[in-house]
Simulated assay, not measured.
Amino acid sequence: METPANDNNATPAQRALDALVENTDDTAALDTLANSEVLVPVPDDALEEEAADPSAVALPVLEEPDGRPVVPVFTSELEMTELLPFVSRYRLVPLGALASQWPSDDLSLTIDGSSAHGLTLTSDGVRTLLARPR
């Protein structure tokens, strides 16, 4: 199957992820990613008021096979439905803004986790690599 990043419909964030697969130190790709909006699934147990509040984002937390908690975000609806086909709501959030408020615990972030260009970062990596001044 051809990934969306390999066709003309790839988003800038997907192209940045592809570049980071080749070179993890690509600062231009990191900047593009940090300045991109990502889809953050709204947890099923989030109240409607919480889901609509522009000042807060309820983070969906999944458990990795090794037990580590991870927050999945996506560069497109297609990427999201491949991993989480039953998600009914999501929010568009600037990744850099999300990263600048990332908790300091062991919560990781995975971007397009089911794709060939997926990227998972530790909490330190999220704050260090993706948080950008607003």
Rank of each mutant, 00 (worst) to 15 (best):
P103G: 12
G118I: 00
L129Y: 10
A52I: 08
R68S: 15
L47N: 11
D25W: 04
N6K: 12
E2L: 14
D25P: 00
T81D: 08
L130G: 03
R132C: 07
T32S: 11
P54G: 09
L33C: 03
S115V: 02
V71L: 10
L83I: 08
I111P: 06
A10G: 11
S104T: 15
S36Q: 06
E49G: 08
L47M: 13
A10F: 10
T24K: 06
D124C: 03
D26L: 01
S115P: 00
G125L: 00
P12G: 09
L130P: 01
P12S: 10
A116G: 08
A19Q: 03
N8K: 14
V61I: 15
D124V: 09
E22C: 01
V87E: 06
D31F: 02
P43T: 01
E64M: 14
L95T: 02
A10V: 12
D26G: 02
V42R: 05
A46S: 14
A99E: 08
T122V: 00
A13W: 01
L59Y: 08
N8M: 11
E63V: 15
S114Q: 15
D44R: 12
N8E: 14
R68M: 14
L59T: 11
L84A: 10
E82Y: 08
V93L: 01
Q14A: 11
T122M: 00
L20H: 12
V73S: 07
I111K: 03
D124P: 00
V42H: 08
A51W: 02
D18V: 12
S76D: 08
V21Y: 05
G67T: 14
D25R: 07
A97S: 12
E49A: 13
L39D: 00
M80R: 10
P72E: 08
S114I: 10
R68T: 15
T24A: 09
S115A: 13
A5H: 13
L20F: 11
L98Q: 09
T122Y: 01
A116Y: 06
R68A: 15
R15L: 15
N8G: 14
N23Y: 00
L17C: 12
S76G: 07
Y90W: 13
A56E: 07
D7M: 02
V42P: 06
